[in-house]
Design a protein around this nucleic acid. Structure first.
Lengths: 244, 244, 244, 244
DNA sequence: AATGAATGAGGGTTCATTCAT
DNA sequence: AATGAATGAACCCTCATTCAT
């Protein structure tokens, strides 16, 4: 009996995969060049089809943009929602373990480029703005708000002056990191950040800022360490910072 | 015999003012639309001149972009440098008073748009990348690094795991705020942040994160509270969220 | 089963013919208006396509010019080379019969316009100058040099003071005729030359100038008439001006 | 009493000289670049005035072109007319001495560029065509026609098949030489012609072609030389052409 | 379904011409 | 008279979109 032909991307499979292949290609090109400067030729070519084929799947360049934005971040946000909902434990642990991993994964995925794309294009495409605010910004903000709120509720964190501001202090550098990766970060200038370690350090810093100073324990035990978790089982990797 | 009257916007005066007028207009249009989607007509019209006039002062649209970037942020960064160098006192005070004011001013100025512009355009204009990294990123980062370092040297802050990362945790939300103002923030969706208060709260949060737990106090008694100035003359404005 | 009908100007056939159609149109328009004053729209329209189509085949107006020049005269020069190499007989006969026919054909062809084009454009397009000198001027000059040299070698012509000058005396009026056809000659002013007859007369005049006075005949008697063939089978057409 | 200021080109003199200075500059620029590609800025600059000044003297670029053409060759033609009318002697001598000198001077003068200019521009400027035909071509042709006719009348020349054609055989290379000087000749490619010697040789060749073979003299004297003047007092400089 | 040749509106840029100084 | 800043029409070229094959 003859073995299956390697079949590679068979015609049938290609056809079904086309829309996603086109979205992937479009995301790449739009993020690299910006929507206005991107050529539909380039998108088609990177997807391995002809320019005409692109128009069989998306009726215009702008519709393609909308599809790219619509399909690229929602699942990443949902992933965050799922993670947070799945872990019932301490907020600090959740941040340290799962939020860090979640953003590290997001940063490494092509979807990270959507942040740059949004920044660039929202003002020219108002319909997209509404979608982005409703489907990405708000749920994303909500996930982290829930995490911090849980920390407050559990007594891990003291209530900050303005919870929403604290969420932004936590969130914006992560977003900015994604943006940077596709802007200056793609220009190979100088020794760049180790992004994953920055995520961990940043989250740790926020934990430190929010953590209720263990006043009693400190006074009694004198563990004059940083305000972070006293147990330190999963604490921040101690690094070059010179211990006194 | 009377001298020539200053004659309002005389030919001569207009000519001297033109380059800056054009830069201002170009910054607005480029930030709103993105460089590629911006029409030179629009820039000229917003500057109150005809399209041809623009080319008397800048040889091409791309040169105009470079001029916009070159002339818009360097002075703002220098301002930060000056502020930091001028104030010899505590790092916390410096952050709370002057860094906040500095970024609030920057955010309100049109120059804040340059951050968006850079994000959008660096990859398409490599010469710009080098300039931006050298003249804006590096000095800007350095100013805040110096502030934090001063705090460490003076014993206000404990040495963070990675100073550079801490600088970014402080800086990136401020940059992102500028970017946001010209992206989603310009789309009037939902109740937006009070940006100035966010700046203050964010800086305060970072101060909290970095502050050395008042060890002396710890040893003596229990005032393990936030490491900020005990007198609190210039402390964070107490607000609703923080019932005393 | 019948094969596909040739289907008139099918897409495929058009595509293959396009480059030449565009070259033909471009030659016409450039020669009529001059390169700088010619509009690419006009070229496209005369070729029966839209402006954009032109750019599918030639990347710029200047490249189109170069293609026009490169493809239009080289074959005509090669034709002359072939003619001269193919005929082993007398130089006089070669001039009278074949060189005349060659230039008459060249004058009637659109390629004659390239001479005007070159004159107009060489100084603005130095790359073209080199090509023209190497591929048109030199070989063209060489063909006629060979003819005259053959006449000298065979004793038909006496060696002129400067062979190259003689070649130019022969060649330049022919070139000028081509130029004139597309300049003043196209303005229908006054009774114009019968160009074909001029070519014949001019060549005849040069033959007369170069011909070795028929020494033998001179010695014998007085038939000191024009040095042409005594039998005159292929001699100059007797015309009105020369009553027999 | 103060001495006269050096005054150089005094204001007054400059003002009166302006039109001619502008014409000279325009001729140079138009001949170099072609009318369409020439910029009025360049013309003004080369004349040492501002662009606006040019328009004080000529109402448009096209009017400037007409003035250039109108003022540049007529006097040269008139010069030829004068020379021919002033010398009553032999046509051969006239050609050899004065026609050669006349064209050599013309070739060296900037006016030689007008031939190129005409070739380039007649079709785009019909009014100019009429002027050129009437004021340059016709009189210029007439001067040489008169010379040849005189030669025929005096028995120096035998009547050619078509006198007008003979005139063109004589004239066109001279014109072409002027044209070449400002086209390929200005591109410095390879060893170019010694133009003055070519003029002499060309005229000599035409004399040879037209000269009535001195049958009697030749038969008797056996001076088997070229058919040129038997006395050779002012004959062609004998050159490298190997004497038998 | 897929192709890619063709289209033509749109935008960057130039430059002849004008006009306030 | 002279200047040169300003204008805007015109032109080269690009690229999203269409459609015959």
């Amino acid at each position: 009996m003859p073995s299956q032909p390697p079949s590679g991307p068979s015609r049938q499979r290609r056809k079904e995969a086309r829309p996603q292949e086109l979205l992937d290609a479009a995301l790449e090109v739009f993020v690299e060049r910006g929507f206005a400067a991107a050529r539909t030729d380039d998108v088609a070519q990177r997807a391995g089809v002809s320019k005409g084929t692109l128009y069989l799947y998306y009726p215009s360049k702008e519709d393609l943009l909308k599809a790219v934005i619509t399909h690229s971040l929602a699942s990443e946000i949902a992933e965050g929602r799922r993670i947070v909902d799945a872990h019932a434990g301490s907020a600090v642990l959740l941040l340290r373990e799962f939020v860090v991993a979640w953003w590290a994964r997001l940063l490494d995925s092509p979807a990270s480029g959507v942040f740059k794309l949004m920044i660039t294009e929202v003002r020219n495409h108002p319909e997209v703005a509404e979608f982005y605010a409703r489907e990405v910004m708000m749920p994303g903000e909500q996930v982290l708000t829930d995490v911090l709120q849980r920390g407050i509720d559990r007594g891990e964190f003291h209530p900050p002056a303005d919870l929403r501001h604290a969420v932004f202090s936590l969130l914006l550098p992560l977003v900015m990191l994604c943006v940077h990766k596709h802007s200056l970060g793609a220009c190979s200038l100088g020794p760049s950040l180790d992004a994953h370690r920055f995520i961990a350090d940043h989250v740790e810093l926020l934990i430190a800022a929010l953590s209720r100073p263990a006043t009693g324990a400190q006074a009694q035990g004198g563990s004059g360490a940083a305000a972070a978790s006293p147990t330190r089982t999963t604490g921040p990797r101690p690094r070059k910072a010179k211990p006194r």
